[in-house]
């Protein structure tokens, strides 16, 4: 509890991090509020098409080329972006932690094999691989999450491996070995909890990049066709970009806000959890 308080004090001293946290919480609020504020299907045609924002007080965000309420789409889109961002991050962290801890703990050929594999994955252009996976295995939220985590885990694996390499030489781990702890218990209960700091920081940055990848996919028309997503609205708005550029502009601002907020939180965590590096 005291630790948490001290952490919060360090985190909240950073105004940029607080701003980031505020943005992220606001977007979560938007996602939660969407079904209450806009209970109807956001894909429904409810308004006159091409209403500019603030033109009609009933639709403050305007409407798109088919007369769908942009506000409803953006609010519901927040839900999809956060959902995909969070699940893809959790999945990549799980893969990355598993690979990284096995490589770092066992070393030798296990390390060699896993790291070579990681290097191969890191060589493949990530966005192109996600496109291919989604294109081949149909676009659903599930495949998008899988595709994003396939390309995102290597950085976590490297971080965790580096932590394990130094931690496993430390005395508390040696003591655990002497006590006869199993490898599994040593990894999970001793080393892993001590190597979570960089993973937590990486996770918030990774969620930001997952949201960007998802936006790119749905912009190309590879998103889940059954849900609204920010990237898909921008892609649809392209058709009428010359006359009604606000359709593409507004969801873009939402994406920037979400990604910026998460990046700021990540940096704030970095500064608060690594006090030595706080100079920057």
């Amino acid at each position: 509890m005291r630790n948490a308080l001290a952490f919060w004090r360090r985190f909240s001293r950073n105004r940029a991090a607080l701003l980031g946290l505020f943005i992220v919480l606001a977007i979560i609020a938007v996602a939660v509020a969407a079904p209450f504020l806009y209970p109807d299907d956001p894909m429904g045609m409810v308004a006159q098409p091409f209403l500019w924002p603030l033109q009609d007080p009933e639709f403050p965000f305007g409407s798109d080329s088919l007369g769908r309420d942009l506000g409803a789409q953006i609010f519901h889109g927040a839900h999809v972006s956060l959902l995909i961002g969070a699940t893809a991050t959790i999945a990549s962290v799980l893969i990355g932690v598993t690979v990284g801890s096995l490589a770092g703990y066992y070393g030798g050929w296990v390390d060699e094999a896993l790291m070579r594999f990681t290097e191969v994955v890191q060589t493949i252009p990530p966005f192109i691989l996600t496109i291919i996976v989604v294109a081949i295995f149909h676009s659903t939220i599930g495949t998008i999450v899988v595709a994003i985590s396939i390309v995102s885990w290597p950085s976590v694996a490297r971080l965790v491996r580096a932590e394990f390499l130094t931690l496993r030489e430390r005395e508390f781990v040696q003591a655990g070995i002497v006590m006869g702890m199993s490898d599994f218990r040593l990894i999970v209960t001793q080393i892993l909890p001590n190597s979570m700091t960089p993973v937590i920081i990486a996770a918030s940055l990774m969620m930001a990049s997952s949201i960007l990848i998802e936006a790119g996919l749905s912009f190309l028309g590879l998103g889940d066709p059954n849900v609204v997503s920010w990237g898909a609205i921008i892609g649809a708005g392209r058709e009428a970009i010359r006359e009604a550029w606000y359709i593409s502009a507004l969801p873009g601002i939402a994406i920037i806000a979400a990604v910026l907020g998460l990046n700021l939180v990540g940096e704030g965590l970095n500064d608060a959890l690594n006090p030595r590096l706080r100079r920057r």
Binding site: A215, G216, G231, I234, G252, I255, L260
Partner: peptide
């Protein structure tokens, strides 16, 4: 740098098209 680091490429492209092209 923070803002551009958070901006989707395709969105910048579209906005530049509107500004400098249209």
């Amino acid at each position: 740098a923070l803002v551009f680091y958070a901006t989707p490429l395709f969105w910048i492209g579209l906005m530049l098209i509107i500004l400098f092209g249209v």
